[in-house]
């Protein structure tokens, strides 16, 4: 048990805004049924959040968040719209730098590196933290150039190497078999689900260790959603994945840990199985049972 994930959550019911980081490992022996090999006991912290606040102008979007997102696991963020889950995600790769009024304070560390520090090179940061957006956003280029876009930015490589990167990335995104014969056709000719997987491949090709997914399936049909979820299951062995979702089933199906957020506060964070079957907080209970949100 690594020291960075403190033991035993004692959620203060009087003040749910400051939940202590839970210890998901507690539950793994009894709760995890699908993947006994995971061995939750050996998780390393990937992203550490402590006393984290964020604002848009005067709007206090995130209030005093404290949590540790473990490495090589899928962490789902759930909660009603406007609760700040996307905002949080967009701070991890500093996409909020694009919003003029956005600012943040507190500790947000990726593998020990403070992300809010002014010395952090956001361009370098985004190489290590890939992002998949709500709506598939392939560039209006062909499939190959879409995947090769990132490597071409950062690396000098031969044609053969680049071909390998593109092929491996597309394989990792479970798209290779569908597109290998038409790599030069426009990315926008793919279906919505394929486009989203292309965006995942594009993110993988840069060689990130963390993947942020901002409601990646909300614009997709159920079949494509299933394909993306399968893909996530394959990727979880290699990547730290943080996914924001509106879809309760998706969170319970696909994630290892779940964080419930409400009005900018992290209400509950713990093992997915636990959050969904015996939430410690009443608000969580109400939300997942569909009483609000």
């Amino acid at each position: 048990m690594p020291a960075t994930i403190p033991k035993h959550p004692e959620v203060n019911m009087m003040n749910p805004s400051i939940p202590l980081p839970p210890a998901p490992a507690e539950h793994d022996k009894t709760m995890r049924k699908s993947d006994p090999s995971t061995g939750h006991g050996d998780t390393q912290p990937a992203i550490e959040v402590a006393g984290f606040d964020a604002w848009y102008g005067d709007f206090h979007a995130l209030k005093n968040m404290n949590m540790v997102i473990p490495e090589k696991r899928i962490t789902a963020f759930i909660g009603p719209s406007g609760c700040g889950k996307s905002t949080f995600l967009r701070w991890i790769n500093r996409m909020n730098d694009l919003v003029p009024s956005a600012r943040a304070a507190g500790t947000l560390k990726l593998h020990g590196q403070d992300l809010l520090d002014s010395s952090t090179d956001v361009v370098e940061l985004r190489r290590h933290v890939g992002m998949v957006f709500q709506k598939p956003n392939p560039f209006p280029k062909n499939i190959y150039d879409n995947v090769a876009f990132g490597p071409r930015l950062h690396l000098r490589m031969s044609r053969v190497e680049l071909d390998q990167v593109v092929e491996q990335s597309l394989r990792s995104a479970a798209l290779w078999d569908e597109v290998k014969d038409r790599l030069k056709s426009p990315a926008l000719s793919l279906s919505g689900g394929q486009q989203q997987r292309l965006c995942i491949a594009r993110a993988i090709a840069v060689g990130p260790s963390v993947l942020l997914m901002d409601e990646p399936c909300s614009a997709l049909d159920p079949r494509s959603t299933a394909a993306i979820e399968d893909l996530m299951a394959q990727l979880r062995n290699d990547y730290t994945i943080a996914i924001v979702t509106h879809n309760m089933q998706q969170a319970s199906r696909a994630s290892d840990y779940s964080a419930f957020m409400y009005q900018g506060e992290l209400i509950e964070f713990g093992d997915t199985e636990q959050v969904f079957t015996m939430p410690r907080n009443e608000q969580t209970q109400n939300y997942i049972t569909g009483r609000f949100g």
Binding site: L155, M157, V165, A205
Partner: peptide, 19 residues
């Protein structure tokens, strides 16, 4: 700039980093 230095998850051909 301080390095963020986790290993890339999947070993892809890395080429040489651009200057």
């Amino acid at each position: 700039m301080t390095a963020i230095n986790p290993q890339p998850a999947v070993s892809l051909p890395r080429g040489r980093p651009k200057s």
